[in-house]
């Protein structure tokens, strides 16, 4: 007590005390100064982002309320594109196909990738060879990947039909029947994407502390049980990132549709981005295309938030 009073009466200390006005000014100056490194670190990205990503995006939102606007002059039409979008049958089909594709692709890719990653994790010999070999398909350009799949699914010469024929089974019509065509597209995308996710999950598995697994072994937990009780919970935060990224990327399904099926048969493989692409460039229906892109953006944002809430909460609990 005495000490405080003594300090307060100290002329030096008193001199240092500032008025409210001075304090406010100093505070904002301090805050501004604290922003300097933020600008330095965030500036380069945020500048390029605002010019090359945010601006085109703002513009595309504006175009969704207009007709034309790329080659010819934009004409404001209010919500017309949006109401046309909501009543478009082909878009409904495209959305259904894309959703089905996203669910199957994520499920198949993630289960296969987790299986392979855990096999690689417990069998270290030749790991590098397997990693490179599995990543290889990602290097093949989409046009050629499509050609490869024409071969694989060829009615007479495709490897699967040759096997079926040897077993006296009926051959499959891969691209002419539903849901075969969509499943063929799923396999093409799984073929291309599997390697990336194997590496991804392998990295995750390798980060699980060895003592955790040893402890479980001593407790007599089998490998399946160890996988379920230790690997999966530890991987959950990783899964969150993976699911979000996979959602975003898979909703953009386009390449393999363009190369393999052009949306057919009977609209069995139209995807949302294929729908947008056709309106935007082939039909020059700019307004509908942009209304749909903004709509897709909103949908994926909602799904991401839901995924985040669902998986994010659980991962917090498990930590």
């Amino acid at each position: 007590m005495d000490l405080v009073e003594q300090n307060l009466s100290d002329p030096d200390w008193q001199e240092l005390t500032m008025s409210d006005e001075e304090f406010r000014r100093a505070r904002s100056r301090y805050k501004l100064r604290a922003l300097v490194p933020v600008v330095g670190f965030l500036g380069p990205f945020l500048f390029l982002w605002s010019v090359f990503l945010a601006t085109p995006m703002v513009w595309s939102i504006w175009l969704s309320f207009n007709t034309g606007g790329l080659i010819d002059e934009a004409k404001f039409v209010g919500l017309e594109n949006w109401s046309r979008m909501l009543s478009n049958d082909e878009l409904v089909r495209s959305l259904k196909n894309t959703a089905t594709y996203v669910v199957i692709a994520i499920f198949v890719v993630f289960s296969l990738a987790l299986l392979i990653a855990s096999l690689l994790n417990s069998n270290k010999r030749g790991q590098n060879f397997f990693k490179v070999a599995l990543y290889f398909p990602l290097l093949v350009p989409p046009i050629m990947a499509g050609m490869i799949f024409f071969f694989l699914t060829h009615y007479d010469m495709g490897i699967i039909n040759l096997v079926l024929q040897a077993m006296n089974q009926e051959k499959l019509n891969f691209l002419g029947d539903n849901p075969n065509a969509l499943l063929t597209i799923v396999s093409l995308e799984v073929w291309r994407g599997l390697g990336f996710w194997v590496l991804f999950f392998l990295a995750g598995l390798q980060s699980i502390p060895a003592d955790l697994i040893d402890a479980a072994k001593i407790d007599g937990a089998g490998s399946m049980r160890r996988f379920r009780k230790i690997s999966i919970p530890t991987l959950r935060p990783l899964l969150l990132f993976a699911v979000i990224i996979a959602l975003i990327f898979n909703f953009q399904l386009f390449d393999s549709v363009q190369v393999l099926t052009k949306g057919g048969p009977v609209l069995g493989t139209t995807s949302v981005v294929w729908f947008i692409y056709k309106r935007l460039f082939a039909f020059q229906d700019i307004g509908l295309a942009y209304a749909t892109s903004v709509g897709l953006l909103l949908l994926v944002v909602v799904l991401t938030v839901v995924a985040y809430g669902f998986l994010g909460k659980k991962s917090e609990n498990s930590n």
């Binding site: 500048f47 601006t55 085109p56």
Partner: peptide
Amino acid sequence: MFLAVLGATALVVGACG
């Protein structure tokens, strides 16, 4: 950042004009 957006928007609008 918002200045940049504005500037860039001006550029784009300039393109239409």
